[in-house]
């Protein structure tokens, strides 16, 4: 039993899929502590623009990052489907604002490709790769880089 689980974990990346600006992104499910609906946010002065502030997550003051700002997406607005994904990476806990959060998907490792180099586009370091699943294209994020945490990176480690 346990063997088969580790087997799955070795071959698949269990990921949460969420939507930003009509694109689908994925991040490892092991980072996710929960998904919340939008809540009142208190702005914190003097922090990067994409840090929206802090909010009250059941008694814990939690910083919140707007991925739409982080990815320089303009013209966004909060809708009914806007969600906060709570991330726990090492001992850092943050919330991520996304347009919508969906299901958990097992992404076969073999399907993960490095992000395509498009001439003229700005290379960003926080994209780990892309995965094509049937008709879906998932962008895999390197969360430590998204959050600018320089720490050990175990998940999504490139093997080659």
């Amino acid at each position: 039993m346990t063997d088969s689980i580790t087997e799955t974990q070795n071959e698949y990346l269990q990921s949460i899929v969420f939507q930003l600006n009509n694109e689908e992104y994925a991040l490892p499910v092991s980072y996710v502590g929960g998904i919340e609906t939008m809540m009142p946010i208190t702005r914190v002065p003097g922090v990067p623009r994409y840090v929206k502030g802090v909010f009250n997550l059941r008694g814990v003051v939690t910083p919140i990052i707007d991925l739409r700002e982080r990815f320089d997406i303009s013209n966004y607005e909060n809708t009914k489907s806007t969600r906060i994904i709570i991330l726990q990476i090492n001992d850092v806990e943050v919330g991520l604002i996304v347009d919508a959060a969906y299901d958990v998907v097992d992404i076969p490792k073999s399907k993960v490709e490095p992000s395509p180099d498009v001439i003229g586009s700005v290379q960003v370091d926080y994209i780990h790769g892309v995965a094509k699943l049937e008709d879906r294209l998932l962008i895999l994020l390197d969360m430590e880089r998204v959050l600018n945490i320089v720490e050990t990176k175990e998940q999504y480690q490139t093997e080659s």
Binding site: V44, P45, V61, P63, V92, E93, I149
Partner: peptide, 9 residues
């Protein structure tokens, strides 16, 4: 403010 936001002025 948690471990993510340290040193807020």
């Amino acid at each position: 403010l948690g471990n993510y936001l340290t040193d807020v002025f």
